[in-house]
């Protein structure tokens, strides 16, 4: 058996590092290529609005240095985990803002992604097993219908319906503002309660496509000769389903799962806006609106890092679950 080699891991690691470097360099260059002077902008936002103030801002944020020098400082900062200081929330470091926002995004996006995949796998498998039954028709029919609804509409509907009219769920925020939650469980419960609608909305819109995909993967695998041969061998049904059918049918979904996990930190900007949920998405949105370049850059750097890291992880897992993946 082949197993993962040290050489393979190193190769993947350096390739990931290179990708990350390219992404971070773009992240540095893009805002500078967009034109406009953030210092002027910041100055115009203040009561003073003077040229002296702008100059002061430039010096403070190192914008008076050459681009190359700024680039070196930027990379150096990244290595030390220093993403600079936010313009609009001066002098709060970008890392602090991001560390506050990330857990909320991860909570909502990870839970909804995992939930959606899990449910999609189960419903998709059952629908495929009972192809042509009322259950299958219902699942497929509903999916096509749901898939055609735009996300913001689902979100608004949940907020208006379950939040505003029925009052079953809070309409926004990650926790009840100003609430006194002494015990750990009270706090966890409050957080889970607030996460319900955002999670639900994300599950609803992503479920249909994943379910349809899982169903067709299973049907595809069922038509393969090795399944017929497994039946001919007199294997028990459970064994055929797990070792022969599911192992193969789940491979493409695994790719989808890894992609979604990679995008988790990027978050769901629309979700966080609709549910006023204080995650990375909302942070990016606000940072862009207020021209807070260090914050925008910091967020994108973290997103790039997480995408690259998850891809690296996926590269390590693939050969274990699919022996056909080449180790070169």
């Amino acid at each position: 058996m082949k197993g993962i080699t040290v050489k393979y891991v190193c190769k993947r690691f350096f390739s990931a590092l290179f990708t990350l470097w390219v992404a971070l360099t773009f992240n540095f260059l893009l805002p500078r290529m967009m034109g406009g002077d953030p210092a002027e902008f910041l100055a115009s936002q203040t009561a003073l609005g003077s040229a002296e103030y702008a100059q002061q801002v430039r010096e403070q944020f190192g914008l008076d240095k050459s681009v190359f020098e700024q680039y070196i400082r930027y990379l150096g900062g990244l290595v030390r985990g220093d993403l600079g200081v936010s313009y609009t929330n001066f002098p709060i470091p970008v890392t602090e803002i991001i560390t506050q926002a990330i857990p909320w995004t991860l909570l909502v996006v990870l839970v909804s992604t995992l939930l959606s995949f899990l449910i999609a796998w189960i419903i998709g498998t059952l629908a495929a097993l009972k192809k042509g039954s009322w259950f299958d028709n219902l699942a497929v029919g509903t999916s096509f219908y749901i898939q055609s609804i735009p996300y913001f509409w689902v979100g608004m509907l949940l907020v208006m319906g379950l939040g505003y009219h029925l009052g079953w769920f809070p309409m926004g925020h990650a926790m009840t503002p100003g609430a006194e939650l002494s015990s750990f469980w009270a706090k966890a419960g409050n957080i889970a309660y607030h996460a319900c609608l955002p999670v639900l909305s994300l599950v609803i819109v992503s479920l249909a496509g994943r379910m349809i995909m899982m169903r067709s993967n299973i049907l595809q695998v069922f038509s393969e000769d090795y399944i017929v041969l497994a039946q001919a061998k007199g294997l028990r049904r459970g064994k055929i389903l797990t070792k022969y059918a599911l192992r193969n049918a789940l491979l493409p979904s695994f790719t989808g799962l890894m992609l979604s996990l990679g995008q988790a930190v990027g978050g769901a900007i629309a979700t966080e806006i609709i549910f006023s949920y204080p995650g990375i998405g909302l942070t990016i949105m606000n940072a862009i609106l207020s021209h807070d370049y260090p914050l925008v850059q910091g967020c994108f750097a973290i997103i790039a890092l997480s995408v690259v890291a998850i891809n690296f992880l996926a590269d390590l897992i693939y050969p274990l679950i699919d022996p056909r993946v080449s180790l070169d």
Binding site: D225, Y226, V228, L229, K233, G234, K243, N248, R324
Partner: peptide, 25 residues
């Protein structure tokens, strides 16, 4: 039927290439 299959009668299928599960030894 399950015991008849393979104990009494076994079968090698038409397409030589896809008779085996690709992800299992």
């Amino acid at each position: 039927l399950r015991t008849f299959r393979w104990e009494k009668s076994s079968m090698v299928l038409q397409s030589a290439m896809n008779n085996l599960n690709p992800v299992v030894t």
